[in-house]
């Protein structure tokens, strides 16, 4: 007699098929191809196994590691600036009693734009000849020379971070504002009676309450920023001379411009470690902050 396929398997089969098609197979394929010299222009290279050669190449590749380091720097600066500004905005919006709803909606506007358009916008704003910033600086007499915002390495990095912060600070602001709404009023009032100045109340009561929200925002944003691509690609294309090259612009160049997909996939797997490390770190912080508040795990 033929063995019957168990019911649970039949019921789960559609899910298995979908997951296999959209996650599992691409994952296995890309992992496999990272062990080959796969070039998009020469499909036959897919079948040549070269072991860990790609990975060994990456480990000694200065360009890769400088992009790696630059991504960490970019992440750290952008996240911290966004956190501080977002916190500040949230605290101020929380004080507003009239028209707060409208203000909250306006706050979300930057999130509604496509990152590519934000990139173009800031490319124009920071353009050294016709850009708004130089125009303003010169009109105000602050500077006579045209500052090379997108041409000088450090200034270009600053400009990209500026665009990133402009676009995403509101994510922090919204999440922290949600946190502020969720704070019970009683401990705040108790703190006032206990002798706290407004600053002490913020430092000792409000901030601990906000920490879980801050870490959730950090986790989400660290994943987002670590794969920053569009803004950078549009504004500088990783230039000048690779001075703003981040992991994802490097990977896309390697994979699609140089067509070396095997190597690009290997880079992808190495850089995922970065995202995992950040996620694990922030999740640990999140659980700790929640445990602080007696929220459990």
């Amino acid at each position: 007699m033929r063995r019957r396929i168990p019911e649970w398997f039949v019921l789960l089969l559609p899910a298995f098929i979908v997951i296999a098609a959209v996650v599992l197979i691409p994952l296995i394929f890309s992992l496999y191809s990272s062990f080959t010299p796969y070039k998009l222009t020469r499909p036959s290279t897919l079948w040549r196994w070269i072991g860990t050669a790609n990975y060994e190449k990456i480990l000694t590749d200065v360009k890769f590691w400088s992009a790696f380091g630059r991504t960490i720097l970019f992440l750290t600066i952008a996240l911290n600036v966004e956190l501080l500004l977002g916190l500040l905005i949230a605290l101020m919006v929380n004080k507003v009693t009239w028209g707060q709803r409208t203000l909250r909606t306006i706050l979300m506007f930057p999130m509604m734009f496509s990152p590519i358009l934000v990139g173009f916008q800031f490319k124009f704003i920071f353009n050294d000849n016709i850009g708004l910033v130089n125009n303003a600086l010169q009109s105000l007499g602050v500077s006579n020379a045209a500052l090379p915002w997108l041409v000088d390495g450090n200034l270009a990095m600053f400009s990209i971070i500026f665009a990133e912060v402009w676009m995403s600070t509101s994510v922090f602001a919204i999440l922290i504002l949600a946190g502020l709404f969720a704070i019970p009023q009683d401990p705040l009032e108790a703190a006032k009676v206990d002798g706290c100045t407004p600053w002490q109340t913020f430092r000792h009561i409000t901030l601990p309450f906000l920490m879980p929200f801050i870490f959730i925002a950090m986790t989400i944003r660290s994943l987002d920023v670590a794969r920053a691509y569009d803004i950078v690609q549009i504004m500088t294309g990783g230039g000048p001379a690779g001075r703003t090259e981040l992991l994802w612009t490097l990977m896309s160049r390697t994979g699609y411009v140089d067509a070396r997909m095997g190597l690009a996939n290997a880079m992808g797997y190495v850089s995922i470690l970065l995202s995992i490390a950040f996620t694990v770190y922030f999740f640990k912080k999140l659980s700790a902050a929640r445990a602080e508040l007696g929220m459990g795990g």
Partner: peptide
Amino acid sequence: LPPRERNISMVFQNYALYPH
């Protein structure tokens, strides 16, 4: 005067302890 300068203590209905 703000509460902190009134030299009072208050016990709240929901205890209002600092959870952290």
